[in-house]
């Protein structure tokens, strides 16, 4: 299908779409967590502990006198690993309790759920070779280094990105993101071989890129990004997947199945 055909279809359908991307993977009602009786004040000067947790693939939050830890990878012996870290970095032998938490509960939504998901998104970007990450106020920007819009020089590209503005509850037990399409100018760092954000002449490249690249609709751009880089987050054995903008068809489908929805049901 050409871009022109897509545009015609979009206009003729005359349906208004919201900038929401709904999780199509597991729901976060019963999530395994590791509770350690620890308060932030006790470790606020111990940066090494926090760094070690992150480097070993964990995200964590302090809430109600506990440190709540969630592994972002499939792991065995989490309790053992955390105990060793605690002892090595802080010299503590606190008991670690494996518990189940409902991350959709209102009480933990802001203090734990939203922040855990934000941290997971950052980790996703750090671990993915084709995604650059940057923070813009409260929003998280994921930039695809492979979806080129315009290439003015060999080492410079204007690429497509996705700005995740907000994280919301959806249908009581699911989550969704409000997103916006963005473009970003990046340049190749020849020393490290990786891409980094272009600060000089950035606006100039973006302006020129817009003359060459005419996205048909915002929906097209967002879906293009998500199809090439579906956002997949793994939080304590739960796999969250964000693959496309919420469509009217999807709205009806959710009503029927109330939970996990497969991608082939949409098309």
């Amino acid at each position: 299908m050409t871009n022109g055909e897509t545009l015609t279809k979009h206009i003729s359908s005359n349906r208004k779409l919201l900038n929401l991307v709904v999780n199509e993977g597991d729901i976060l009602t019963q999530v395994t967590t590791y509770k350690i009786p620890l308060v932030y004040q006790a470790i606020k000067d111990q940066n090494e502990f926090a760094k070690s947790l992150k480097s070993k693939g964990y995200v964590y939050r302090f809430f109600q006198g506990y440190l709540w830890v969630f592994p972002l990878k499939q792991k065995e012996n989490v309790v053992k690993e955390l105990s060793e870290l605690l002892k090595k970095q802080l010299g503590l032998t606190n008991e670690i309790e494996e518990a189940s938490i409902n991350l959709m509960d209102d009480k933990v939504w802001y203090p734990i759920t939203v922040k855990t998901i934000k941290d997971s998104l950052k980790q996703l970007a750090y671990n993915s070779p084709n995604i650059l990450f940057q923070k813009d106020h409260n929003a998280i920007e994921l930039i695809s280094t492979s979806t080129t819009i315009y290439e003015p020089e060999i080492s410079i590209r204007v690429v497509l990105g996705l700005k995740i503005n907000g994280i919301y509850k959806c249908n009581s037990n699911n989550i969704c993101f409000s997103v916006k399409e963005i473009e970003e100018a990046i340049q190749l760092n020849r020393t490290t071989g990786s891409y980094q954000f272009l600060l000089n002449r950035r606006e100039q490249y973006l302006e020129t890129a817009r003359k060459y690249y005419r996205p048909e609709t915002e929906k097209e751009c967002i879906n293009t990004f998500l199809q090439s880089h579906p956002i997949q987050i793994f939080i304590s054995k739960k796999n969250l997947v964000f693959r496309q903008i919420l469509s009217p068809k999807q709205v009806k489908t959710f009503q029927k199945v109330k939970g996990l929805v497969k991608l082939d049901e949409f098309f």
Binding site: I11, K16, L17, L18, N165, G166, S178, K180, K219
Partner: peptide, 10 residues
Amino acid sequence: QDIEVIDSLR
């Protein structure tokens, strides 16, 4: 706030 309609300029 950040929830918007896609292509609201139309």
